[in-house]
Measured scan of single mutants.
Amino acid sequence: KKKIKIYIENENGEKKTIEIEVEGDIDEIAKELAKKYNVKIVKIEP
Rank of each mutant, 00 (worst) to 15 (best):
K3W: 15
E32K: 12
E14R: 07
V39Q: 03
K36E: 04
I6R: 00
E32F: 14
E19W: 08
I20W: 07
E23Y: 13
E9D: 02
L33R: 00
Y7A: 02
K36Q: 06
I26R: 02
E14D: 10
E32Y: 15
K5R: 14
I8H: 02
E45F: 08
V39M: 13
E11Y: 12
V42Q: 04
T17C: 08
E28F: 08
I8G: 02
G24K: 03
E21T: 08
K35S: 06
E28R: 11
A34D: 00
V42C: 12
K3T: 08
E28K: 10
A30C: 13
K35A: 07
A30Q: 04
I6M: 07
A34Q: 06
I20K: 01
K40L: 09
E14M: 11
D25G: 04
G13W: 02
A34F: 06
Y37K: 02
V22R: 04
D27Y: 14
T17D: 03
T17I: 14
D25T: 06
N38C: 12
E45Q: 06
K16R: 14
N10I: 07
N12W: 14
E45K: 02
N38G: 13
K31A: 12
A34Y: 06
E11L: 11
I44C: 05
E28D: 10
E32T: 10
E28V: 10
N12P: 01
K5P: 00
K31V: 08
K16D: 11
E45Y: 07
K2T: 12
K3S: 08
G24C: 06
K15F: 14
Y37L: 13
K35P: 01
E28L: 12
K2G: 08
T17V: 14
P46L: 15
E23S: 11
K5D: 01
K1F: 14
E45A: 05
N38Q: 07
Y7L: 09
E21P: 03
D27R: 09
K16I: 12
E23Q: 09
L33W: 15
G24H: 03
I20P: 00
K36V: 05
E21C: 14
E28H: 08
K1W: 14
K16H: 14
K31R: 14
I20G: 00
K35G: 03
N12M: 12
I44P: 01
I6V: 10
I6L: 11
K16Q: 12
K1T: 09
K1S: 09
E9S: 06
K35C: 07
I41R: 01
I18C: 11
D25Q: 05
K35T: 06
K1V: 10
I20A: 05
K5Y: 10
I6H: 00
K5G: 00
K40Y: 08
Y7M: 08
N10E: 10
E11S: 12
A30D: 01
Y37W: 14
E19L: 09
I18F: 13
L33M: 07
Y37D: 02
K43A: 10
K15G: 09
E23P: 03
E19P: 00
E45L: 08
N38V: 03
E21L: 09
I4L: 11
E19K: 05
I18N: 00
N10Y: 15
G24L: 02
K2C: 13
K5L: 13
N38A: 07
A30Y: 06
V42R: 02
K16M: 14
Y7F: 09
I20C: 11
N38T: 04
E21G: 03
T17N: 03
I20L: 13
G13L: 03
I4A: 06
E21F: 13
D25K: 04
I8Y: 15
V22Y: 13
I26F: 09
K43F: 12
K43E: 05
A34G: 05
E32L: 15
K15H: 13
G24N: 03
V42Y: 06
E19F: 10
E28A: 11
I8C: 12
K36N: 04
T17A: 06
K40H: 09
K31E: 08
I41E: 01
Y7E: 05
L33C: 08
E23N: 08
K15A: 12
K35N: 06
E14P: 02
I20R: 02
K2N: 09
V42M: 07
I26E: 05
I18V: 06
P46N: 11
E9F: 07
T17R: 03
E9C: 10
K16F: 15
Y37N: 03
I29T: 04
K3G: 05
A34S: 09
E45C: 13
I4Y: 15
D25I: 04
E19S: 07
K16A: 14
N38Y: 06
G24P: 01
P46K: 08
K1E: 03
I29P: 00
A34N: 02
K43C: 09
I4D: 00
V42A: 03
I44H: 02
K2Q: 13
T17Q: 05
E28G: 06
K40A: 06
E9G: 02
G24R: 03
E9Y: 07
V39T: 04
I8E: 00
K35L: 10
K40D: 03
E45S: 06
K43G: 10
N10V: 07
E28N: 07
E11F: 12
K36A: 04
I4P: 00
T17K: 04
I18H: 02
I26Q: 03
V39N: 03
K40W: 06
E21A: 07
A34H: 04
I41M: 03
I6T: 00
E11C: 12
D25M: 04
K36S: 04
K16S: 14
N10W: 14
I18R: 01
K2E: 05
E9K: 07
D25S: 09
K16W: 15
E9M: 13
A34L: 06
G13K: 04
E32H: 10
A30H: 03
I6P: 00
K31F: 09
K5F: 11
E21S: 08
I6S: 00
K2M: 15
E19M: 07
T17M: 12
N10H: 13
K36H: 06
K31S: 11
E28I: 08
I8K: 00
I41Q: 01
K15W: 09
N38L: 04
A30F: 10
I29E: 03
K1Q: 07
I20V: 09
K31D: 07
K31N: 10
D25F: 04
K5S: 07
I29N: 02
I44M: 05
N12D: 10
I44N: 01
E21N: 07
A30N: 01
K40P: 03
N10Q: 11
K16T: 12
V22E: 05
Y37G: 02
E45H: 05
E9Q: 10
G13I: 00
